[in-house]
Design a protein around this nucleic acid. Structure first.
Lengths: 235, 235
DNA sequence: GCTCAATTCAAACAGTTGTTTTATACTTCT
DNA sequence: AGAAGTATAAAACAACTGTTTGAATTGAGC
């Protein structure tokens, strides 16, 4: 086994270590793990090329630290806490969508979380698994519980999942397909006003089907939808 | 100006040129333009490393040729012709969604078009502009006309665009976020049966709002929606 | 002031990349 | 058969990558 060189300490208020992290976050979000070079990051942080290896071991160490930190930020916790509101499910869903959509127009750090996620999905790195387990899965589970409650089906029912993906798809497309949208939709400026309208639209668009589905299935009994696996008893 | 080396001829039935193209298509779709190397492509095609430069000038020449060819394939024309059907708008929309969604489960060449598009959106190359102008824009325009007709608003009205993005987002998320979905939804196998159910769901999900919107706006007069620009007279 | 560890820096290293070169086979026409 | 243009092959090239090295600099503790 290779001798593991000690990455000395992670004391707080280490100026260059900190500067490397914020520079790396921006550049990784912009170009992805592979296309970003440690020289770009170094000059952006005003540090030497060897600083990355000194403070983080190697490029992947810096990247995983960026991903790790980006998983516990205010933006993500806001979405999670929106899911924990004690309110009517419709209002919770609206809040989740609004909280999430608002992040796409931030002027300071424009949606770095989802930009990194987009790069990970296009070119996975070892960090993707961590990203799915730590944020994706728990968020998805809570969203599935919520939707299941609204349409009267178990959380792991295929219909519940289809609805969740439909909602998520409407949200993420604004981050993933941004250049495409900007190219075909010149009036898309992502001003705060417009972002609010986008969030309202996605909520209206989704709730229309969900509330209709609940009405339909509560009128008759549940039928017609064939799950790909037997739904377990919803906890 | 640099002397442009002649890329000799593009005769049909050139075995190595052809083999390079299919190998490049697969590898570019899999890893994106930058991460794919001409050595990988060469060995996959059973050709020499210099063959790429001989037949296509350089790596970007090969890539743009792949993109150019991928823009005029049966899959894309199928979606376009589905938009030209003379049928009720609802049926056209269903057909477009179904035609497009079916491509995500092909066993032979699993959705290379959208995989290349996904890579382009994450890391744009000069081919992205071409991709938007030649395929994205015309497709979007026809889809906007269709949706505008269904909700009774001009094609360039903000509400029309929001609906189009909502529909497109539901579709593309299955390609763009494939690893994420597979990770959080183990039963997602993308069998032909399941793909049909996905297509039906997206159509139902979207038509619920669209038909409700038309009913709502035809009852009262059109109001309440504030366009970001003055809608031009719908041609 | 000296010591010793922590940190920074410039330079070099080894590997990979796209590209070019040079030589060699292969076809086709006369 | 000979010539000319076409295609392939192996090798080398230059640029860039992440990483390492070793010296220089800093800064606290005695």
């Amino acid at each position: 086994m290779k001798s593991i060189k000690r990455i000395h300490k992670s004391t707080d208020a280490d100026p260059t270590r900190e500067k490397l992290l914020v520079a790396a976050w921006r550049i990784f979000a912009d170009r992805g793990y592979r296309a970003a070079t440690i020289r770009q990051i170094s000059v952006a942080a005003g540090a030497n090329v060897a600083a990355v290896n000194y403070h983080f071991g190697d490029k992947l160490g810096l990247y995983t630290e960026v991903v790790r930190q980006s998983m516990q930020t205010a933006e993500i916790e806001a979405v999670q806490s929106a899911l924990d509101l004690s309110a009517p499910p419709e209002e919770i869903l609206r809040a989740v969508i609004r909280t999430r959509v608002r992040n796409i127009c931030r002027k300071d750090r424009p949606d770095w979380h989802f930009q990194i996620l987009a790069h990970e999905l296009a070119q996975p790195t070892p960090a993707l698994r961590q990203l799915i387990e730590k944020v994706g899965r728990p968020l998805a589970n809570r969203l599935l519980e919520l939707i299941g409650k609204m349409i009267g089906l178990p959380a792991n029912h295929e219909k519940t999942r289809l609805c969740a993906v439909s909602i998520m798809g409407q949200v993420v497309v604004y981050t993933f397909a941004d250049p495409l949208l900007k190219g075909a939709w010149p009036e898309l400026k992502l001003t705060p006003d417009q972002v609010e309208r986008i969030a309202d639209h996605i909520a209206d668009f989704s709730l229309s089907y969900i509330q209709g589905f609940r009405a339909k299935t509560s009128a008759r009994s549940i039928q017609r939808t064939r799950p790909s696996v037997k739904p377990r008893a919803s906890k």
